[in-house]
Design a protein around this nucleic acid. Structure first.
Length: 205
DNA sequence: GTCGCGATTTGCT
DNA sequence: GCAAATCGCGACA
């Protein structure tokens, strides 16, 4: 269909396992600007969100669930790159991560904030409250029971990632992670500068 | 089996 | 600013 403004198929191409089978910090930055798709199979409706804030967790990182552990929930972090790691926290919230590094090496990126692409109102009045790791899973109905360990590289899944426009390096803010005791000083949180959907911004000078 | 606490959010002081 | 909500997981017995 020449001349139409319909999205080209390549615009919806999923991220591949190769994208995730890299250094966790690289993936955490590269994920900014990519698109998370949530499909409701009952209605066929899809919600598309840009990734605007991430955090990295690695095997050698004292704040990581897989630090010194290979069993229990930590086992997920050693599995195939590109699958989801969803855990339940504080008795009421789920957190969404994607597994990184080659299989056998633990690593994950936590999704901390998303920008819903068809949300017309700002974060404060938004129907979809997708800023903050606990809020975004609630807004998109993401749960451990339904979504843990599903491949986010597979568009037949109700939750998956497709290619977006990467956020340029100059627009990425690098800072410390939120809500952890260990390794508080690691600069392993990344977000898109000036994006209103970011959960916690570094105080401006 | 029991205990303490967490990659959070909200509401109240 | 601070504490409550609320339960799975990991540590220890």
């Amino acid at each position: 269909m020449p001349g139409t403004r319909q999205l080209a198929k390549s615009d919806l191409s999923p991220l591949t396992p190769d994208f995730f089978a890299r250094d966790t910090l690289t993936v955490a930055r590269a994920l900014l600007g990519q698109i998370l798709v949530r499909r409701d199979d009952a209605t066929g409706k899809e919600i598309h969100c840009r990734v605007v804030e991430t955090e990295a967790y690695t095997q050698d990182d004292p704040a990581c669930h897989a630090y010194g552990r290979t069993t229990g929930r930590a086992a997920t972090m050693y599995k195939r790159p590109g699958i989801a790691y969803v855990y339940f926290i504080y008795g009421m919230y789920h957190c969404l991560n994607v597994i990184t590094e080659p299989e056998g090496k633990a690593g994950a990126v936590l999704f901390r904030a998303l920008e819903p692409l068809h949300e017309t109102r700002g974060p404060k009045k938004a129907e979809l409250r997708t800023f903050g790791p606990g809020r975004l899973t609630k807004a998109l109905d993401i749960t451990k029971a339904l979504h843990n360990e599903i491949p986010l590289t597979d568009p037949t899944q109700p939750l998956y990632l497709v290619k977006g426009k990467p956020v340029p390096k100059t627009q990425i803010v690098t800072t410390t992670r939120i809500g952890i005791k260990e390794a508080r000083d690691y600069p392993w949180r990344f977000y898109e500068q000036d994006n209103p959907w970011v959960s916690v911004r570094v105080p401006s000078p």
